[in-house]
Write a protein that binds this DNA or RNA. Structure first.
Lengths: 109, 109
DNA sequence: CTGATCTATCGTAATATTACAATCATCATA
DNA sequence: TATGATGATTGTAATATTACGATAGATCAG
């Protein structure tokens, strides 16, 4: 046991969950917020901004890259990260249709 | 080590992350989808719908309850779960302002 | 080439998550 | 009261995540 049983869910459910999971850590929320704000991509300034070790930041960046939310390009000795516009907006759409307005008709429960 | 360092992040970042994390599992996505669809609250039918053990479902329900997304009311021998309209719509708003439209000005990277 | 800088990766420890069987608690009904 | 049904809790095993130091690889300045 211990591992998530992805086989029993739909492709969509698994992808939505993976995306949520990627943002399910404050450090990764902070990273994305930074990238959204300073639209000009940041590099390893993140290590100074957040109070985490370089190896840890690198690991978080990797996870965001894995779900496609960000992309990095090598720029000399440093790496330049930024939001992937396409994926970001795609996720935004998916989330919008998941998070529909909900009203408790005839007072459920 | 091993534990998330919540102290170094803002309240908002931690709450947003916690909320994403709660939905960061396909089973919990599936549960919420069920609750959204069959607006009349479901009980332990979830155990049959999803292919997971009763104890596992109960655990997932607990996590959704912890972040306030769902609430359960005892109804005889069974428990009636449903989306918490207030919290749900609140989260929807928060997510909307987080997931802003993003356009790569002057082609970042 | 050498040293400095930046980032990724490896190894590892601590902790958290996922899943299930077994059991407990509660309520409904015979 | 006893029995059955339902859901929560406990205990436990397998796996994943988080964090960091140390190290490796790549690139720039000199």
């Amino acid at each position: 046991m211990g591992a998530t049983k992805t086989e029993i869910f739909t492709e969509k459910q698994n992808r939505l969950a993976a995306m949520m999971k990627a943002l399910g850590h404050p450090a990764r929320i902070a990273i994305v917020q930074q990238l959204l704000q300073t639209r000009t991509c940041i590099c390893g300034d993140l290590v100074e901004e957040l109070g985490l070790a370089q190896a840890t930041i690198s690991q978080h960046l990797k996870e965001l890259k894995n779900v496609g939310l960000i992309k990095g390009t090598i720029d000399g000795t440093s790496v330049c990260y930024c939001i992937d516009e396409k994926v970001w907006n795609q996720y935004r759409t998916i989330l919008n249709s998941f998070f529909v307005v909900y009203t408790e008709k005839n007072g459920c429960c």
